[in-house]
Write a protein that binds this DNA or RNA. Structure first.
Lengths: 158, 158
DNA sequence: TATTGTTATACTCTATAACTATA
DNA sequence: TATAGTTATAGAGTATAACAATA
């Protein structure tokens, strides 16, 4: 929290942020954007997309998951998932198989190559997380994650 | 942090989140999304857009600011700002005036009506912040803001 | 030449609704 | 009728590059 005009300004900021300075919402947006951009840049270096990470991980940890369930777990509409999965299948990372006993649904699994892509994304993510942990301080990571998780769960209610 | 299969599951989640469970990046995305949606919904009730809040506040606290500077303060390219400002001017919230001594630039200020809109958005934002403060616990708010701010600044380097 | 703002354009990510094929 | 996934479509929100006016 900073009061009055920023005498000990952060250099870039001759600009007065007003009330934004103290808002969770504002800082959440800025931090998320910075983190996403950093991750996307690193993932781009190995020709993988940041949005593919959670999907590949969810399929890996829940082999046979269907698209609707995957969409919900990822917080996205099933229709948003179709083109992403099309791409992942085209890349040879994901396999769609009809579910036995329910021929409407697809059962999703990773291919060998998909597991490789996930491993590479995991490397990127791990380095990215280590960098963020260094920034906020190792001992604060769990605390931060817990606060964010509380926020997400709490806001979902009602 | 949760280990093993979630016996005390959060109900929605029969899905195993794998490593995502412990990632700052993942929780940052989820929390930001939840917070943004909640704020957007409330702002929508008074026919205002969430993206207008920071812009109105920045103009209010920095009267006469130019578009390029405003864009930087808001973390957006100046070209992204043009249509937003067009809209705010059309709504009668913002005034563009040529800068004396530099006839390329515009000096931005709020109109009376713009200050009204900002006040209404501020009411929404304040209620929203109070809700989030309740969720994470009053005493943790400053801590959370500080951690997020550290993250943003730290990631901006390099 | 450099800067301020605008325009043309395009890309990413997302959702809603209507559709198909099953159930 | 209801469900799983696809398609058509649209809308935010953003950026890059080329441009006109001005410096």
């Amino acid at each position: 929290m900073r009061h009055g005009t920023s005498e000990t300004s952060d250099k870039i900021c001759e600009v007065n942020l007003g009330v934004l300075e103290d808002l969770i919402g504002y800082h959440l947006r800025m931090a998320q954007e910075a983190a996403f951009l950093a991750f996307a840049r690193e993932a781009g270096l190995i020709d993988l997309k940041p949005g593919h990470f959670s999907i590949l991980e969810l399929i890996d940890k829940n082999p046979g998951i269907t698209q609707t369930v995957l969409g919900k777990a990822n917080g996205r509409n099933k229709s948003s998932l179709t083109p992403v999965l099309d791409e992942l299948v085209r890349n040879g990372f994901v396999q769609r198989q009809r579910v036995e006993g329910n021929r409407r649904a697809y059962s999703l699994t990773l291919t060998q190559s998909g597991r490789g892509a996930l491993r590479r994304l995991l490397n990127v993510a791990t380095r990215h997380e280590q960098r963020m942990a260094r920034i906020v301080g190792q001992k604060n990571v769990q605390r931060l994650v817990q606060l964010l998780n509380q926020l997400t769960s709490g806001l979902a209610e009602e």
